[in-house]
Design a protein around this nucleic acid. Structure first.
Lengths: 218, 218
DNA sequence: GTTAGCATGTAAGGAGTTACATGATTTT
DNA sequence: AAAATCATGTAACTCCTTACATGCTAAC
């Protein structure tokens, strides 16, 4: 079943391809437009990744595109068309296995989903993620950041020597940025919870008679 | 002269050791307190780095520490002291060559100083950096971020399909964060320029008679 | 007809991490 | 005397980047 190894790229590719078939070049542009503020991928990693995913059967060439990339017998006539052996766009689409794998990746709530490098990518595909998993990822990221704040703050408190103005300014800016992200996460978590409550209420109304379990694990 | 290869760790180590001699464990804690909001280093990279720097003669063991790490002949008597062959703190200090190398690294204003992974480290040692270099690094980082803003914004403008709320929120938060950093850089740059002007005025006053060249390359 | 951008790929390697292994010292 | 944490180190590996190489297609 070939693990087609971890790394956010896999998720980024699979997630993008889930929306619509794409070829490598366009895929990269999409990705860098979507995640450009957080990270950028190069062709040098994208194409090998596509190759691996293809080998693993998670994606497949999409024949719907008119410029077939096949080397099969096509009329040797009129080779003015861009079919030189194998040079044209290669459009990929998700296979059934690929969709399964994507669902797997989207269900994982762990360090691999809330660390700096990966959180943005996971968040970008929250639309396809279950509500519960979304919440756990958001909370996971928040505690990750709070750990960081704690660590730096206590380390700072233990420091005897007073720091120069640049170090101080860096500290201040860093703290502020992380605190801002925590506040942002708080808002998102509140929204998610409110939605969950609403969804539960809707479900309750639907089955009406049955008393809602309502396990208040708050 | 052994290049003792690039990577921010080298600068981080050399910079820290420039303030005061330290051993590996403590060094790591310092670093993670100083830069914890931006990145964290592990022992697995720190110790090999120290070894390399030692081999290159940029750092040396500091004999000032009472627990000498030497294997030289010390009285075999009273070996209850922690001197088992070679297990105790190894305190390193900068050599003359190391100081030179540090100055080199601090003078470099280029991508290696203003990219995400490295900017924080360079900034943390701005105290030891020339005013001119500081300015170029700050401006370099600013244009890097502005490029990013441009790229994402134009890509976004070209996008036909409207995005789901999560993608949108990610976009918004990303843009806002980067814009905030740009504003922060603007302030820092202003401050730096004001200081430069003041410094020039001071120098002019000092030599008084001599008309200041004042090449207004603004 | 030449630049600029679209499109696909590979080889080499960089900068670190994780997990492991070990031992010394201090605290409880 | 057990647990925590201080302290040093290595091997294997990961994920990605840089630099290169190639060729098509559109625009100026």
């Amino acid at each position: 079943m070939a693990v087609s190894r971890g790394g956010v790229l896999e998720l980024a590719v699979l997630g993008s391809l889930h929306e619509t078939p794409l070829h490598g070049y366009e895929l990269r542009k999409r990705l860098n437009a979507l995640l450009g503020m957080f990270r950028a991928f190069s062709y040098g990693s994208l194409y090998p990744c596509l190759r691996q995913l293809l080998a693993d059967g998670l994606i497949a060439e999409d024949p719907l595109d008119q410029r077939a990339s096949g080397n099969a017998a096509q009329g040797p006539r009129d080779n003015a068309l861009p079919l030189t052996g194998r040079r044209s766009k290669i459009v990929y689409k998700l296979t059934a296995e690929g969709k399964e794998r994507l669902q797997d990746l989207l269900t994982q709530a762990g360090p691999s989903s809330w660390e700096d490098e990966s959180f943005g990518v996971h968040f970008a595909f929250f639309r396809h993620t279950e509500a519960e998993v979304r919440l756990r990822i958001l909370e996971g990221r928040r505690s990750r950041l709070e750990e960081r704040l704690d660590g730096v703050r206590t380390a700072l408190a233990r420091t005897r020597e007073r720091l120069d103005s640049y170090t101080l300014e860096l500290q201040r800016h860093g703290l502020e940025s992380v605190e801002r992200e925590v506040r942002w996460l708080n808002e998102l978590i509140d929204t998610e919870r409110a939605q969950a409550v609403r969804a539960r209420a809707d479900r309750a109304e639907a089955q009406d008679a049955e008393p809602v379990p309502d396990k208040t694990n708050e």
